[in-house]
Design a protein around this nucleic acid. Structure first.
Lengths: 202, 202
DNA sequence: ATACGATACGGACCAGCGGTCCGCTTCTGC
DNA sequence: GCAGAAGCGGACCGCTGGTCCGTATCGTAT
């Protein structure tokens, strides 16, 4: 029992804030045109409540990001292949990257808000640490890879929200094409053959 | 003659602002603890002058970045190998990445300021467009590469300022080690052999 | 040298942001 | 039902990027 259960109204307000922020971030051009006051108003809540519940703007964004990411995390931690833990590394690593890419495509503004939160480096978040550690451990089990830690960073960097946003918005790369390009790239970075087609695991 | 030569005092003030911003960004913890008022004061200039000369904060940062980057650009556009245009792609591409990495190591806060300038995506800057086009053209001449445009984006993403900062500050990777890791990574992403050692061009 | 229009100066000023504070309301254990 | 803890909310604050305009400086034609 780390701490007492929160009061009923507090829980309700927290949920309302999360929901309001979610829709607000979904329908905006840029994440930083959403202000804390906007979220408070949309949630029918005072600004102070927001800051008490989440600490600061970054905290709210992290909480929202975490909530959205939860299904994916569950699928990775204990789900069926190719995301689940029973999958061999050479197949699972690209699957992870693909899943992450899709997540960022589906939650563009939120991811953008999290990664571009100004001074707070995105590399200091729990989420990043988690994904990086996971990917690194996977890559370490692939023979012939020079540096799993750096490679993991570099591959994750290829799925950064602003890059994904640029590719879809400016270069108009369609979703499936983007997934294919990332998959091809990941395969070649992992030392696989340069040709296309699905990865074989035998 | 696109526009008349600027007045003498305007030119002097511009240079003073650039110099002041340069030292200010060099000695700070985070680029956004440097305010426009700080720069104006350090340059002995009014705030209005700053905004007239550079438009806005982003404009000033871009101008400063460009000025700092100029020697490197020159070396790339018309310099000796391995950076210069006479170098074969398989050798020149890693050299470009290495040079960019070194530049970001040497101008951490400035690069951080440019890339993390909030809403303005770093992918919309002239500098990025330039480097990306250059690297893409190079990669297109390497046989067997799936998608030069995406690969160029992905490789450049591995040199993002905040990632570089994280690796040096948090993971304490020394400069030369980082350069080696990036080189190894680039080589493997480019379809080369996975082993270490310098690239051979014959 | 001088006069005069164009250009640039600079700091008071503004709007809007994240974040705080504290008198008041609402919950919850007894 | 009561008392005190927990939470509420919006006025408030400090600070930022950016604007404005009366004043000072520059370049030039005379």
């Amino acid at each position: 029992m780390p701490d007492r259960a929160p009061r009923k109204d507090a829980a309700r307000n927290r949920a309302a804030a999360l929901a309001a922020a979610d829709t607000l971030f979904a329908d905006c051009r840029s994440p930083d045109e959403i202000t804390m006051a906007d979220i408070a108003a949309a949630a029918g809540v005072g600004k102070g409540t927001l800051f008490r519940a989440f600490g600061d703007r970054t905290g709210l964004i992290r909480a929202l990001y975490g909530a959205r990411l939860e299904p994916l995390s569950a699928a990775v931690d204990s789900g069926p292949p190719p995301l689940g833990p029973a999958t061999p590394p050479l197949e699972r690593a690209p699957a992870l990257l693909d899943a992450l890419l899709c997540f960022k495509l589906d939650n563009r503004h939120l991811a953008l808000a999290l990664e571009g939160t100004g001074a707070d480096s995105p590399y200091r978040t729990q989420h990043y640490e988690h994904w990086h550690a996971l990917l690194r451990d996977l890559l370490e089990r692939i023979p012939g890879l020079a540096d799993a830690g750096f490679t993991a960073h570099a591959l994750l960097a290829a799925t950064r929200a602003d890059l994904v946003g640029h590719l879809t918005d400016e270069e108009h790369v369609p979703r499936e094409e983007l997934r294919r390009r990332l998959a091809d790239y990941a395969r070649s970075a992992l030392g696989g053959p340069v040709g296309r087609g699905p990865v074989t695991t035998d």
